[in-house]
């Protein structure tokens, strides 16, 4: 009898625990790995959002930005995500075509993104320019242009455009600068490329371990080393041809069972609180002008922006990837 009573008590307790756990809705967010890493914005954003939402914010870290698009392609209209976070301006049209994203209904009029923001599906949460980073203690005179880098013998790390948004960014950067000659330039670059990693994180860690002379990252990356490590030797090289622009965006999926919660998350993402966290954890520029940035951000290199329009990117992305593969395969 005692055993029976004990069993009933245990079952009742489990049911109560489960019931309690279920009272808090879970908001599932697909993002990229480095966003959810211990030093990325993920942990702080999660804590700050959960303070007021009475919910559980669950990040699912995928390899890199393009992987989020692939995941949406795989899952289609049955996507398990409520929000996708970490796609960029170059993938917006292609993602919209999947017809799995909902309108956000978030007021983005006060955002200060280069070129302004009117899109009703995606909400921007940070932006920046791609740049090659070097160690100024090892390299006194870095290349002054993209062409100088390609024609040099410096060992380079960059990311795969099939998986990573910086990798895709470099491909578009090369297209914007070289047009039809891009494949030939990639071929030259391949002669001194150490390796092509599937994600940004891997390439950047290899670079900071001293494995290569330059790595593809962002013009804001050196700020991280100054603020977090007190290291000033890492610099971004300014190129005369200009630098390709990236705006990172988030969106709500059509399949979400909690559209209001998802919307409140997007609103939180562009709030002053979240925008204060993002620049010093994701090391990108905020989309609000009223955020106070660390002093080092004023030293971020001034660059000439480059951008290819969305339609051209959507129409040619696969062809350009094939041409990159052909040019670099041995």
């Amino acid at each position: 009898m005692k055993k029976l009573m004990l069993s009933i008590a245990v079952i009742a307790l489990s049911v109560i625990t489960v019931a309690n756990a279920e009272t808090k809705p879970t908001l599932k967010v697909y993002t990229y790995d480095s966003f959810v890493s211990e030093w990325g914005p993920g942990p702080q954003i999660k804590t700050a959002f959960e303070e007021n939402c009475a919910c559980i914010l669950e990040f699912v870290g995928l390899a890199d930005g393009v992987s989020i698009l692939t995941r949406l392609k795989i899952e289609g209209k049955d996507s398990r995500a409520d929000v996708v976070l970490g796609l960029d301006n170059n993938l917006m049209l292609e993602t919209k075509d999947l017809n799995v994203l909902a309108q956000h209904n978030v007021d983005t009029s006060m955002l200060t993104v280069p070129g302004g923001w009117t899109d009703t599906t995606f909400v921007p949460f940070d932006w920046g320019y791609f740049a090659f980073i070097y160690d100024s203690e090892k390299m006194a005179t870095p290349p002054k242009s993209l062409n100088e880098l390609i024609e040099s013998d410096l060992s380079v790390l960059y990311q795969d455009p099939r998986t990573s948004t910086p990798g895709l960014g470099l491909m578009l950067w090369m297209q914007a600068v070289y047009g039809d000659k891009t494949a030939a330039k990639y071929k030259t670059l391949a002669t001194h490329t150490l390796t092509v990693t599937p994600d940004w994180w891997g390439a950047y860690e290899m670079f900071t371990s001293g494995e290569a002379d330059m790595v593809l990252s962002y013009s804001t990356s050196p700020a991280y080393h100054v603020v977090a490590e007190g290291v000033t030797k890492y610099k971004a090289a300014a190129f005369t041809e200009g630098h390709y622009q990236q705006i990172e965006v988030a969106a709500i999926t059509k399949n979400t069972k909690q559209p209001e919660l998802a919307k409140s998350f997007l609103e939180f993402l562009i709030s002053k609180k979240a925008q204060t966290i993002i620049p010093v954890t994701n090391w990108m520029m905020p989309v609000r002008s009223d955020v106070t940035l660390p002093e080092i951000f004023s030293e971020v290199i001034e660059v000439e922006p480059l951008l290819i329009d969305d339609e051209t990117v959507k129409a040619n992305r696969q062809t350009w990837i094939n041409s990159w593969l052909e040019a670099t395969a041995k």
Binding site: R162, T195, V196, P198, T328, K330
Partner: peptide, 20 residues
């Protein structure tokens, strides 16, 4: 390997996992 040094096996993985 990398994009320049790859095999059919890894290409299958890439096509499924990264490009679907």
């Amino acid at each position: 390997g990398s994009n320049s040094i790859t095999t059919l096996e890894v290409a299958i993985y890439h096509a499924i996992k990264h490009q679907f």
